[in-house]
Design a protein around this nucleic acid. Structure first.
Lengths: 162, 162
DNA sequence: TATATTAAGGATATGGAATATCCCTATTTT
DNA sequence: AAAATAGGGATATTCCATATCCTTAATATA
């Protein structure tokens, strides 16, 4: 069970978009080049963010993506779910139905204990992702990335932002 | 990102094994029949449990599987990891290395903030699974399964346990 | 001792999802 | 008018989960 690489891409792209001056856009081409990713396929991940309403887009030259909300109002969970989907990581196929001792026509009303527990773990994962804001990420990155590299990256992006 | 169905199978099988009298074994055939699962493929899941040391096995007629430890000393995490593996659900491909502004020969020392956060969420999931014991599951099942069905299932299993 | 039954595991097939590329369309800036 | 962009459909490829089959070694039972 491994998350799509598009999740990683989307998070890094959002971190870049979080640094854009208000009202500016950054294109798929620039984001793909900056991260060394296939442009066409990265585009699919960005479309997922767009469909989830996390980013705004505009067409034409100088077009591209920008955050739909301030970084402090965007959670990791929203970004992850936009790309990965909202369905639970544990799927209950209700195998208890196959119990040969089960009476004819007997029908379970509630989810079995196994799925309840697995879903609680799933929720613990989501709760953690929900508690982290995109602004938390950019603050951490600002700490760990050398000032010179941080500054150069910022300028690189600004040169390409429409 | 969805867990293998073998995870569900392994958990249900462990719940059955937890009800076995001391020293008795239950075969793949019986476990597959009870849960309505393909015997050969379920066998792979049980082999995973065996390789992880969670169950003991014995060969020959009246052979099969039994828990290697009391249900109170077996966690959900151990069972899930035996089948699903221990690797993290988020894989960092270190795309920051592709930053065009990155100096020649520059080498990041620690994991990036994105992966740290994703791994914390992964750990929250594992922590929850680690906190639930197999005995917790059997207690919950004893509560929610009708007494008659519970009793019949127990007898069904005992008739087939070697 | 012979036979039946079992776990273990190798080999192989199948289906679906993730990954990736290509191309067309409508829109918007220049 | 031309160039650049997001959106999205179509398709190919790769990989993994799922599934089946078969052989081998060990063990209980008749």
């Amino acid at each position: 069970m491994i998350l799509k690489s598009q999740v990683e891409w989307a998070l890094h792209c959002c971190a870049i978009l979080a640094g854009l001056p208000a009202g500016r856009y950054l294109s798929t081409k620039a984001l793909a080049e900056f991260h060394g990713l296939p442009k066409e396929y990265l585009s699919k991940a960005l479309q997922s963010l767009s469909q989830a309403g996390l980013v705004d887009t505009t067409l034409g030259p100088s077009g591209g993506y920008r955050l739909a909300r301030p970084p402090a109002e965007l959670t990791f969970l929203e970004i992850v779910e936009a790309v990965e989907g909202k369905s639970r990581t544990f799927v209950c196929t209700n195998i208890r139905e196959n119990n040969p001792c089960r009476p004819q026509g007997y029908c379970e009303t509630s989810p079995c204990a196994v799925s309840r527990i697995m879903w609680e773990a799933d929720e613990a994962w989501r709760a953690k992702l929900r508690s982290v804001r995109l602004s938390d990420l950019t603050e951490a990155l600002a700490q760990e990335i050398p000032a010179e590299l941080w500054k150069n990256s910022f300028e690189w992006v600004l040169e390409r932002a429409g």
